[in-house]
Every structure is written in structure tokens, then in C-alpha cells.
Design a binder for these strands. Structure first.
Length: 424
DNA sequence: AATGGCTTGCA
DNA sequence: GCAAGCCAT
């Protein structure tokens, strides 16, 4: 009788049983399966340049929910999820020693340097112990091996070129079946407790949320007033990020929304991400890495390639074939929030301003401002910079031009890319 | 409109 | 001849 085969399925950014090639392969090649997730301490340190928490509260909450859900799913099917706190390479090494015989370690391959470093260390551990390493590709709609390019050098630099070829010739692989019963774990392994939100060092990050709750007029705890006033005065209240960074982002109403929306929800629309990136890099001339690490910290759907690639692109040092491209913040505001409802929802201090004028409070007359109960530099800041191209979209009533209602502008809407009428 | 063709203005 | 501006898909 041959020895029983044990496979460790190391979960990474693929915390699911359904449509998961790691489980799919292990079901066919193992007698015992060990589903494993490791809370890697490196994911809870500061970001490289600006020391934001690398995993913010929204993504951590989602991660904890996903781990709990996968464990419950596996338990229903005769298995469970082993949970450990530690580096995957150390945890896997310990498991191999403890069990004496492991046939293979299976996991989804990633592409960024920190993830690759983990993979290299895992492979070295497995090599030393004569354990097979089985990797899979599973985080893109089109499988890497199915791309309609003969070699990686044939991959277009420009996104639209890639999209057109792939939409025309690409093939999306069918969903893999979900096993009814998952092969059992070997005996004698501790299941491991799932760490808590607080246990992973998430208390400090709540400062940002309460500050922005307060500034959005939603929170009213007077204890937060002090923190907010420190920001208002441009003082650092935290070692991580200068408050002047946040303050500078409050210049334009459309951009003011974003830190609030992001800090409160962990989400920002695609359009918002592009606008914030353009404003931060092209108007404020700040280091794009500040924006990239800020997004990495807060976005619930953060992805290394999308985030860093898009910030590079926005900063003008990516694969854009055209130079000196930047967004006109006022045009964007009028295109996507033509009557200003979105601004008024998130920026209550400007709610007295009617219509699209809410995108340009500094251009309004004193009487219009006082009627709207807005006092520039008191209830809302004046711009620290004004880009010349904004004037093309700013109403200039003092020059006697006809009042533009912007009703002629096509309001594309925030969900332009998801329009049901659009044929792809 | 996550591109790119065409026009404009100046060296 | 080139960079920047305009603007339609």
C-alpha cells in the first residue's frame, strides 16, 4: 500500500472554495488536504515610504470575514481552515517538520516583489524537504496561458490595445466545480484561532475615520473636535502622515469628497481614483507614492498591480503614449456631477450652494456665498492652487457672459463603464 | 472616454 | 518641426 499523500493548500488572495484551482487540483492529487491561511505580520507593518498601516480597517474587516466564511464553508464539507499568525514560509516549514511527510504545497502565484519573495522562500523550504511545489494562475479574467499574444514581449503597452485584442480573441475559462466534500485533514493539527481586529493593531487607524466623520458633519463627539482643530491648523497629530496632505486635498469640492468617502467606506469609484491621482500628482505636484500608499492602506479592494500601475500612469511615468495629460477638475466635476448633488452629499459645509456652482465656491460673489452660508477660509478653504484650465469651465458672471447652466453637458454619470446600454 | 487624430501657434 | 490645445470615440 502506497503512503498517503498530504497536500498543503496555502490560501493567499483566494479565500474561497468555489472556482479555486488550488483546491480543485488537491482534490484529485491528495488523500489529505490541509487548507491553510497565515496572517503574515509583514502585512500589518507600515508602508515603505510614508508609514501608513499597510492593511487598513476596511480590508482587514473583509479579510477576517473571508477567513471566517471559508472556515465555515470547509467545516460543512468535512474539512476546516487552519489559521496561523506568522510568515507563510515559517508556518509551512513547521508543518512539514511536524507532519513528517507532506507531498506538496499548492498555492496561487502572484506577481509583485513582496509576494514573489514569499514564493521563493516557500520553494526553498520545499526543496530542502523534498516537497513538491504546485502553483496556479488565478487572479485575472483571462488566464495568462490563454492570452492571444505569442510571447510576453508581444503584449501591448497601451491598455486599450490590449483590451481590444483580448475582447476579440480572448477566452475566459469556465468556472471550476466546487467539491461537495473536501478531503480530510491529517490527524493531530490544531485548527488555530482567528485573530481579532484589535489584535492585528487596528486601533490607531481609527483616528483617521473619526476625524473625517467629524469633518463630514456626521460624527459629533466633542473629544474629536480637538483632533479636527489640529488638522484645521495644519498641525501634525500623527507621526504617519502630515495633516497638510489631507488639508491640501480639501481644495476642490470634488476632491474633498474622496478622502472622506475613502476613509468612511474603503471605496472610491474608478473616476474618483483617477481624479484624485491627477489632482495629487499634476496639480499639487506631490509624490505619487504618497497617494499609492494612502490607497493601499484604505482601499477595501486594493490590488498591487492596479494600484501602483495606475498611480504611475497618473503621475505620467507609466505607459501613457501621450505626455502632459491631466484632468481638469472642474470639467470632471461638471461631467460627472453636473448638478452638484454628489458634492453636497459628502461636503455638507457647501450644501447651501445650488447646482453645479458647488464645484467652484471661490468664484461666487460675496452675496451668493453669504446666502449659501459659506464663508471662504472659515467654513470652507480657498484653493491653494488654481489651475489655469479650470477657467474654461468656471461661470464668470462679472464679464456679462450668458449664465451657463451646464444642462447641455452630457452627464456621463459615475457608472459610465457599467452602462447597460453599452455594447462591449 | 485609462486615446489619439487633427489643429494651432511659435521657434 | 514640435509641443500644446481641442475634441470626438
Amino acid at each position: 500500500m502506497s503512503a498517503s499523500r498530504t497536500v498543503i493548500c496555502l490560501l493567499r488572495n483566494d479565500l474561497r472554495l468555489h472556482d479555486n484551482e488550488v483546491f480543485h487540483w488537491a482534490q484529485r492529487n491528495a488523500d489529505h488536504i490541509i487548507p491553510l491561511y497565515c496572517f503574515d505580520p509583514r502585512h500589518y507593518q507600515g508602508t515603505y515610504h510614508f508609514n501608513f498601516p499597510k492593511t487598513g480597517p476596511f480590508r482587514l474587516r473583509f479579510l477576517l470575514d473571508s477567513v471566517k466564511d471559508l472556515r465555515a464553508t470547509l467545516r460543512k464539507r468535512g474539512s476546516t481552515l487552519l489559521v496561523r499568525q506568522g510568515k507563510p514560509e515559517d508556518v509551512v516549514s513547521d508543518l512539514i517538520q511536524q507532519l513528517g511527510s507532506v507531498t506538496a504545497v499548492a498555492f496561487h502565484e502572484e506577481v509583485a516583489s513582496e509576494e514573489k519573495t514569499v514564493e521563493k522562500k516557500l520553494k526553498a523550504i520545499c526543496c530542502q524537504n523534498k516537497v513538491k511545489v504546485q502553483t496556479f494562475w488565478g487572479s485575472t479574467l483571462y488566464h495568462r496561458a490563454d492570452l492571444p499574444f505569442s510571447h510576453i514581449g508581444g503584449l501591448p503597452d497601451v491598455y486599450t490595445q490590449f483590451r481590444k485584442v483580448v475582447e476579440g480573441q480572448g477566452r475566459v475559462r469556465p468556472v471550476l466545480s466546487t467539491p461537495e466534500q473536501v478531503k480530510s485533514l491529517p490527524l493531530g493539527l490544531e485548527e488555530g484561532t482567528i485573530p481579532t481586529f484589535e489584535g492585528l493593531g487596528q486601533t490607531g487607524t481609527l483616528i483617521y475615520i473619526t476625524v473625517w466623520l467629524y469633518s463630514a458633519g456626521i460624527g459629533n463627539d466633542p473629544r474629536e473636535n480637538r483632533k479636527f482643530n489640529m488638522i484645521k491648523q495644519g498641525l501634525d497629530y500623527d507621526n504617519n502622515v502630515s495633516s497638510s496632505f489631507y488639508k491640501s486635498l480639501t481644495v476642490i469640492a470634488l476632491v474633498t469628497i474622496k478622502p472622506r468617502e475613502l476613509a468612511l467606506t474603503g471605496f472610491m469609484s474608478n473616476r474618483g481614483r483617477q481624479n484624485v491621482a491627477s489632482f495629487l500628482t499634476k496639480d499639487l505636484c506631490l509624490d505619487w507614492r504618497l497617494g499609492a500608499e494612502w490607497f493601499e492602506y484604505l482601499l477595501v479592494d486594493h490590488d498591487v498591480c492596479s494600484n501602483y500601475g495606475n498611480w504611475l500612469y497618473s503621475a505620467g511615468i507609466g505607459n501613457d503614449p501621450r505626455e502632459n495629460r491631466k484632468f481638469n477638475m472642474i470639467k470632471q466635476g461638471l461631467d460627472y456631477d453636473n448638478n452638484g448633488d454628489y458634492v453636497r452629499q459628502w461636503v455638507p459645509e457647501l450644501r447651501g450652494i445650488k447646482g453645479g456652482d458647488v464645484h467652484m465656491p471661490w468664484t461666487l460673489s460675496n452675496s451668493a456665498l453669504s446666502h449659501a452660508q459659506v464663508s471662504l477660509n472659515e467654513t470652507y478653504p480657498s484653493p491653494v492652487i488654481i489651475a489655469p484650465e479650470w477657467s474654461r469651465h468656471v461661470n464668470n458672471k462679472s464679464e456679462g457672459r450668458a449664465h451657463l447652466t451646464h444642462q447641455d453637458n452630457k452627464d456621463r454619470g459615475i457608472d459610465f463603464y457599467f452602462s447597460k446600454n453599452k455594447s462591449f
